[in-house]
Design a binder for these strands. Structure first.
Lengths: 328, 328
DNA sequence: CTGAAAGCGCTTACAG
DNA sequence: CTGAAAGCGCTTACAG
């Protein structure tokens, strides 16, 4: 049988309110404290969360909305969020939207109905409907991976990372560059990474030939897109907007019997674990997803406590110089 | 301002109990139904979950305990569970234990305290402490990935899958086999897969030379283990207990300048997405993780409704014949 | 420091 | 079919 606060009060010979005060750090004399403590230990009493939340009208749950569960980046961010939250005695509730923007909006409202204390959104696109939802629910929201003026954001600093990667490949002598990117609807991945590369090329004094292509996030689509690029454009390097796309490009090169990096260099973005183990291993930009997750978790708790939190947090990155880029 | 059932009752000119009955499918006349419906639509009323749960003493939440978030198998299973649960109007609450058995036990109790309706455990090892916890919490539990006599299980049929894979490589002519497995503590992955291979070899009339090795689940460890095996044993094939290990073996071969599959064949288990894109693509056994997740979700709901559910459900598998195995 | 009482928003017998 | 009342397990002013 589940014990209630009334049982504890009876057993300890005090009032329910006193037990409640003991539990919540109110003023209780040392003597009664000890009595209550004893009873609680003996009975293994655990307060009913529903009753608590019903009164307090809030929970220590942070809702985390993710577009998909099966992506390296998502997993790592979630791990970071979960770890930090657990540390701070909060709980993470994951809501998977399966890449549906509609379900994303639904999730935001539904989490709010469940009285989560705050929401962390692993964002892809931020629409007006999102902003409207954020305003309506009236609890702290932090975006991870995308930036928006009216919401707190933790981003991966895609532009700088891309700029640095661009400088790197230029230094390696590449002048005939294919950039295989994704939709502009994704500001971070589609726009910022491309912009960083473009800025690096602009800074370069020598002339570069650059072609831009677009593909989806899916590996298989990347294989065929890359294959066509190799055939028609014959670049010395394919700069891919994600590691998955780079993996696809690598496959395309293998299929065509083109040696990487001797005949063709390839780079990615992300730093997925598997990029270390491919042959050749992939030169890429590593983002610190887990740390970004921690940052977001920290931020939401600060916001909850009414403390200061910067509107935009830049997460770290690191160029991983490996085998897939050769001197030209 | 949040509306309560009392507000709705007032606005509709009926009693709270009538609104409650309307909400829960009790008997309400068509006329009052319409009145209530109207008010609810206008106000956008949503019942307070805590109040509901406080009375009903249960939730429509299913707790899912996972050892790690960043594994292909886990992600797919979670996606399956989530999808099915959502369909049935249940919710999934994920608890990540970060591969800690202690945290696994803690999670079980903590989910139970939160009054989840049931628990799905993506299991690695089942200890007595687990069984004790399952008995104490007194709600339905389903294991995914491991089997145990006293708990409902959805398993991947590792033994049969391994047997079939064993038959396949034998038919390809391999007689000098290295099996790179994992700890026996993991019954499904460590024991069953090995047993399946052994059974296939026993069935074979010709003489086989087989060596068994053990490694961790980590890719990098697999690289060095495989490298040593290649050097010392010189097998014609390395059968790896997981795709990650196989990826490591592939890397080891590349590093040593050994051509796969011409000089060395390699197989995995799992059917991770990335195995299709490696060079050469990996011959492996694909498990239907997502479907297994669905099965588990279905099962837990059946159990909740008091319906029949088989103590052990065998999930499907499929040999993915690709490029990493050659005729010998 | 301590207790009695009211109330959070719902559901569920029980009458009618 | 419908309503009044009790109660789920807690917390929070309010007295003392």
């Amino acid at each position: 049988m589940m014990k209630t606060i009334a049982d504890i009060a009876n057993l300890a010979g005090v009032a329910k309110s006193t037990v409640s005060r003991y539990l919540n750090g109110g003023s209780v004399s040392e003597a009664t404290k000890r009595k209550i403590e004893l009873v609680i230990n003996e009975t293994g009493y655990v307060p009913n969360t529903f009753a608590q939340s019903l009164k307090a009208k809030k929970t220590n749950i942070i809702g985390t909305v993710v577009p998909r569960l099966d992506s390296f980046a998502s997993s790592q961010i979630l791990i970071g969020v979960d770890e930090k939250l657990r540390e701070m005695n909060y709980q993470m509730l994951i809501s998977n939207t399966n890449q549906s923007l509609t379900r994303e909006i639904e999730s935001i409202y539904s989490l709010s109905n469940q009285k989560v204390a705050g929401i962390i959104l692993l964002a892809t696109q931020i629409t007006d409907t999102h902003i409207e939802a954020f305003e309506k629910i009236n609890i702290p929201v932090i975006l991870v991976g995308q930036q928006h003026d009216s919401v707190y954001s933790v981003i991966h600093n895609d532009e700088s990372a891309a700029y640095e990667l661009g400088k790197y490949i230029l230094k390696k002598g590449h002048r005939k560059i294919a950039y295989l990117g994704v939709t502009n609807k994704d500001i971070a991945v589609g726009v910022k990474r491309k912009e960083g590369i473009i800025r690096a090329i602009k800074d370069e004094e020598e002339l570069c030939e650059v072609n831009f292509y677009e593909t989806g996030f899916d590996m298989n689509e990347a294989v065929s897109k890359a294959s066509t690029i190799i055939e028609r454009f014959k670049p010395s390097i394919i700069v891919c907007a994600t590691d998955n796309i780079a993996l696809g490009a690598l496959k395309a090169a293998h299929q065509r019997g083109i040696r990487v990096p001797e005949e063709l260099s390839i780079t990615g973005f992300g730093g997925y674990e598997v990029t270390e183990i491919t042959h050749p291993s992939l030169t890429t930009v590593k983002f610190f997803y887990k740390e970004a997750g921690c940052d977001a978790a920290n931020g939401i708790i600060k916001l909850l406590k009414g403390e200061e939190f910067s509107p935009v947090t830049l997460s770290k990155y690191q160029i991983m110089e490996r085998e897939s880029v050769d001197k030209k």
